[in-house]
């Protein structure tokens, strides 16, 4: 009981702190200076209409490289913890899905993959990008696991995709160092026409690589959690 009271007291003090923040908050009327620079100069400097993509891939590109590394480490840790031993036991065949679901998934799976690819290739033009596209690809694999319990991913292929795209990401970044202003500078390639599919320098390339990498990693993570059902 004393413990419960302590928890309530802690949360009450936190709520007081939060209340102070909410009470002193007033909605902003204009952008902060850094954001104003990104919005004002971004389209001319980088040629990407979607400024969130410009910030993620170009202005804060190094952060994104670190973030992809963190995701890789997370996938590695999940593989290490769940990959062997625990899932070896065969628990008998799981209940198969119905004929309708199986057939529908066979048609839907390529379309879902295509949609994921569409999202990350158009990341610099419309909302979306590598992370969202990768998540859609992983959702497509999830659909496959739900409908066909016996299905296995080809781990050799996925890890090849994953490591190749991670490697190429760093290579493209180094290309920016050689041909343009710095590491991960997107002006290593010509900026092209504003708003066209092949524009904004290396941004679509990097986002495609991120999309493939995230899609492969998250699919494997989901499969590890499924185990040998």
């Amino acid at each position: 009981m004393a413990k419960r009271l302590l928890i309530i007291l802690t949360l009450f003090l936190l709520a007081l702190m939060f209340w102070d923040v909410v009470a002193s908050y007033s909605e902003k009327q204009q952008l902060a200076p850094v954001a104003a620079h990104y919005v004002g100069q971004g389209p001319d400097e980088l040629g990407a209409p979607n400024l969130v993509t410009a910030v993620v891939v170009a202005y804060r590109g190094l952060d994104t490289l670190g973030e992809v590394t963190v995701l890789f480490l997370a996938a590695l840790a999940v593989g290490l913890l769940l990959g062997t031993g625990a899932s070896e036991r065969n628990t008998g065949p799981a209940n198969p899905a119905s004929e309708i679901v199986e057939t529908a998934v066979e048609y839907l799976f390529p379309i879902a993959l295509l949609f994921g690819v569409y999202i990350f290739i158009n990341g610099h033009l419309s909302p979306g990008g590598g992370f969202q596209g990768g998540a859609v690809i992983a959702s497509a694999s999830l659909l496959l696991f739900l409908a066909l319990p016996g299905v296995r991913l080809r781990h050799a292929l996925l890890s090849a995709i994953e490591s190749l795209s991670g490697f190429s990401y760093v290579l493209v970044g180094l290309l920016g160092l050689v041909l343009a202003g710095g590491f991960l500078d997107n002006r290593a390639l010509p900026l092209g026409d504003y708003g066209a599919l092949f524009s904004a320098g290396t941004i679509p390339i990097i986002y495609t690589l991120i999309g493939l990498k995230v899609g492969a990693e998250l699919s494997v993570v989901v499969e590890r959690f499924r185990g040998n059902a």
Binding site: I119, P127, G128, F131, Q132, A135, V136, A138, S139, L142, L218, V222
Partner: peptide, 11 residues
């Protein structure tokens, strides 16, 4: 919103 819908509530 796209990230949250696909990752936060889906995966």
């Amino acid at each position: 919103a796209m990230t949250e819908a696909s990752i936060g509530s889906g995966l």
